[in-house]
Amino acid sequence: MDGIHDLGGKLGYGAVDVNEPEQPFHNDYDGRMWAISRTARPTGIGIDWWRHVRELIARDDYLNRSYFDSWAQTEMAALVDAGICTLEELLDGCKASGDIPQALTYVEILAENARKAANFGRPVSTKPLFSVGANVVTDMQGHRGHTRLPEYARGKPGRVIKHHGGHVFPDAAARGDEVAGHLYTVAFCARDLWGADANTLDEVMLELWEDYLAPA
C-alpha cells in the first residue's frame, strides 16, 4: 500500500537527532505501552494485521505522534475492530469484568521473554523459483493492502543472495489467511535504486517474498 509508513528514500524529513540520550524509555508511557504489548493475553490479532492497522493511521498522526503513542492507537483500533472492547469503553472506561492474569515473579518474566523468539518459518509445497545468484526484477505495481515490498524497490533489478525457505506471507496474513511463500534476501545496487548520486560500491538488501519477484 502506498501509505505514509513507506518512508524509504522519501525526501524532506530533516536531520537525524544523533544527540538523543541513550536510555531504554524516554517517557513513562513508553514503558507502559511496551509492557502492555509484551504481557496482554492473546487477542487473535496477528502481527501483520497489527502492522497494517498502524499503517492506516492518518498521515499527520503517523508522522507527528510519538512511536509508543502510535502503538497505543494501533492497539486500541485493533481491539475495537475485533470487538474486544467498544469505543465508548475506551473513552469512558468500563467496570472490572474479568480476573486479571496471575502475578509473575521477575525471574518468571525474564523466562517469558526468552520464550518470545517466534518462528515465522513455514513448510511450503512448491520448489523455490530462484536460486542464490539468480537475477530478479521486483514487481512494478506493488500490492494494494499490507505488503512488505517498499515503493523504492519496485520494478528494480536485484540479485538473490540467500534463500530462507518458506515464511508466513504478510500480504495474506494481514487479510487473515496464513499462507507460506519462499523468502529471499535480494541485493540491489544503490545506483539502480538512486541513480548516479550513489556510490558504485554500495548496496541495499531486502527480504522479499517470491510473489514480489520475477526472473530478470
Binding site: 511496551w34 504481557t39 496482554a40 493475553r41 472492547c85 467496570k95 472490572a96 492474569p101 525474564l110
Partner: peptide
C-alpha cells in the same frame, strides 16, 4: 481498560519495564 477486561496484570507490566 485492559486491566478491567482481565487482560493484563499491572504488576507484570512493572516487571517487563524493569526487565527492559
Amino acid at each position: 481498560l485492559l486491566v478491567n477486561k482481565g487482560m493484563v496484570n499491572p504488576s507484570n507490566m512493572d516487571k517487563w519495564v524493569e526487565a527492559y
